[in-house]
Amino acid sequence: MGDIVLSAGIRSNLLSIQNTAKLLDQTQTRLATGLKVNGAIDDPTAFFTAQGLNNRARDLESLLSSMDQAIQTLDAADQGIQSVIKLIENAKATANQALETKVKASAATSTNSTAFVATTAVSTVTGIDAGDIFTIQVGTAAAIAVTVGASTSHVSALVATITGLTGVTASLTSEGKIKIEGDNGEDLTITDTTGSAANTLGVTGTATNGTNRRTFESDFNSLRVQMDQLVGDASYKGVNLLQANNDLTVFFNEGQTSSLTITSRLMDTSSGGLNISEIIAKAWTTDGSINSAIDQLDQAVNTLRQQASTFGGNLSVVETRSDFTENMINTLVGGASNLTVADTNEEGANLLALQTRQSLGTTALSLASQADQNVLQLF
């Protein structure tokens, strides 16, 4: 094109049209992308500043997801605590029912029509011989053998022998009959093994007329097992804040210089956790043992509530930082947008003005070329 000679007017109008076309392309690109800075060539300072702001916003978005997961972990722990408290309340109700149930000894009373007195020799009773043996069994405990004394021993000696056994009491009724009782209220089984002394006394068989608390003990222990199982299930993505050595660290900035460590705490029924002891069989025969279990349950509830309060404080911190981080992300993205996003109203107006300028430039170029066209009239 350098070999073609153009007049100054034509060249000026041509350059104007070329610049207008370039500006039209730029404006159309801005309208199409919504950005006034599409690359470093458009505005290096704005482009790289906006890129840095967006990069930090993406880093914070990743941390925001981590905070959301921490909130869910704390929520799972709190649900576990509240559920354990409900189980403890059920266990306490079971203990109170046991406390209200008074132990009544199971008793076998002689049906022999012969009235005994303390000074009567047992061996004088027809069917009872010195050396006869019968066993007494209370509940599932081992049967204990009782041997009738020498022929000269009295009924009082037999009563004393039976009373000396663990968990068993013997006495003479006002009618002078022997009465044998299983103290803890469990079934009382009496069986002859040598001779027929127990049969003669009329106390053989199983007495089921007592009242005990074994069922409540079993129910309590079952609830205790459920507490431990529930604590073990209160995990979220492998983190269980109700078990030891499960601390959770939440980072709040991309440099990991701001963080919160949520300390886990063992919340099972062990001595290192809630300290709720298993009830040993027949331990609830006394009211004192039941009251001790209730005291443990009350203390366990206090421990759980204190831990729930601690987790609540942690949750408040994480939620506050989460809200702050979300607002910061919006601020960063907004700042980047201010540097790069195009004003569509302005760009639309520019497009209209450039289209008008292009039309006028074309007209001006046509007018500028008319001077050269006049030369043709000479031929």
Rank of each mutant, 00 (worst) to 15 (best):
T161E: 13
A141L: 13
L332S: 04
G348P: 03
G9W: 07
Q256S: 12
T49Y: 05
S366E: 10
A32N: 14
A118C: 01
L378W: 13
G182L: 06
E346P: 00
T204W: 02
R213N: 09
L266M: 11
K237A: 13
W284A: 06
E186H: 10
Q82F: 04
A118S: 12
K179L: 03
T249A: 01
T193A: 04
S123D: 08
N374E: 15
L351K: 12
D43K: 02
T161F: 02
L53E: 08
A98K: 06
S222P: 00
D323Y: 09
A364K: 03
A145Y: 07
G255R: 15
I41A: 11
Q51V: 10
V239G: 05
A198L: 04
A281I: 11
Q28R: 15
R30E: 14
A308C: 02
S359C: 06
G334W: 08
D268W: 05
W284C: 04
L31H: 09
I329M: 07
Q306T: 15
I81Q: 02
S7W: 07
Q69R: 09
T208Y: 06
V159K: 02
H154D: 11
M1Y: 11
E217L: 13
I279G: 02
L60M: 11
R305T: 15
D192M: 06
G238H: 06
A93L: 13
I190S: 01
F216N: 06
V148A: 00
Q296K: 09
S16T: 14
D25F: 08
Q355F: 10
I294M: 13
V37P: 00
Q358W: 14
L351F: 08
A353Y: 08
G202T: 04
T191C: 04
T152D: 12
L260R: 09
R265C: 01
K282H: 12
H154Q: 12
A198G: 03
L31K: 10
M1R: 12
A300V: 10
F47L: 05
D219A: 14
F134K: 02
W284D: 04
A70H: 00
N54A: 12
A198K: 03
G288K: 11
L266D: 10
A21D: 14
L15C: 05
T215H: 04
G2D: 12
L63Y: 05
D187N: 14
N253D: 15
D298E: 15
S174D: 10
N240E: 11
A98M: 10
L332H: 03
A142V: 14
T27V: 15
A21N: 14
I180Y: 01
T140P: 01
N291Q: 15
I85T: 14
D219V: 14
T204Y: 03
N209E: 02
S337P: 02
S259V: 05
L158W: 02
Q18W: 08
Q370C: 07
R56I: 14
Q355I: 13
D68S: 09
I88T: 06
Q26C: 05
N338V: 14
L6R: 15
T29M: 12
